[in-house]
């Protein structure tokens, strides 16, 4: 297990406050997320973990009435500064959602969608991107003969891996997973967890999960949230074996949440 101290921080969050209208959803959140590792956000519903995840690729921008104070820097650059192009940011920070959401297009077109609209048109180049991305998402062997088939014909777990392939196809540095397995069966969940383990050598992964055991199994660091605040941030092993805060202990031992 890697300790956060050994790796460089890729994402730096500094005194972040977020309001939905008058609701104070994130309170003074500061943390450093190391690169090429898996960081898990855990906590009960409504604790702000998904909200924080969605600030990292600015998906909260779409929600009217959202106000942000503080600073988030990825690779040293402030992502909320005026010069930042949201589209470029989102290309670098990919996202996988709770519900598998492939487009109602063919498997091939789902993966090729991003690169194509970002300007890659060579057939050969696209073929290559599609194959590499599907291989990275551990889906290639299952679908290589059916690339023209509708993505909706796949099972839920396959659809979610397709969504991962689709996100990888635009070559992000960071992959955000917003409860990416909560709609899947245990076997599919296990596959996605194994996949995340493989991907962390190349990508910085931040995952939100409802499932404490998942965080314990998969992640290198774990952040425990409660009511919009960070209660505890530690190496996963430490957080689960010797939590410093009483509330963390209560949560991981299943006393609430």
């Amino acid at each position: 297990m890697q300790a956060p101290a050994h790796t460089r921080a890729l994402i730096e969050i500094d005194k972040l406050n977020l309001y939905y209208g008058t609701f104070h959803a994130l309170k003074n959140v500061s943390m450093e997320i190391p690169e090429k590792a898996i960081t898990a956000f855990i906590g009960p519903s409504g604790c702000g973990k998904s909200t924080l995840l969605r600030t990292l690729n600015r998906m909260n921008d779409m929600i009217a009435g959202t106000r942000i104070e503080g600073k988030i820097a990825i690779g040293g650059a402030d992502i909320y500064s005026k010069e930042v192009d949201v589209e470029t940011l989102r290309k670098k920070v990919g996202m996988v959602f709770q519900q598998p959401n492939p487009f109602p297009k063919s498997i091939y077109d789902n993966v090729a969608y991003g690169p194509r609209l970002h300007g890659i048109s060579g057939r050969k180049q696209l073929d290559e991107i599609v194959e590499t991305s599907l291989r990275s998402a551990a889906l290639w062997e299952e679908v290589k003969d059916y690339l023209k088939r509708s993505a909706l014909s796949l099972s839920g777990g396959q659809q979610q891996r397709l969504c991962i392939a689709r996100a990888l196809a635009v070559e992000p540095d960071v992959l955000l997973m917003d409860e990416a397995t909560s709609a899947l069966d245990p076997i599919s969940t296990l596959k996605i967890e194994e996949l995340a383990q493989e991907l962390k050598d190349r990508y910085t992964i931040v995952m939100v999960t409802h499932n404490m055991h998942q965080a314990a199994r998969v992640s290198n660091q774990t952040v425990f949230f409660l009511n919009g605040e960070v209660v505890e941030y530690a190496e996963t092993e430490k957080l689960f074996s010797t939590p410093r805060d009483q509330r963390t202990e209560d949560y991981i031992s299943g006393r609430f949440g």
Partner: peptide, 27 residues
Amino acid sequence: VPREQKEASLALGLSRWKTITSVMLPI
């Protein structure tokens, strides 16, 4: 059009216009 479809496209770094023309309008 399901919000998930729109978000999926935006999260890939595509502009609103490209999202509308290539994902939302076909649906």
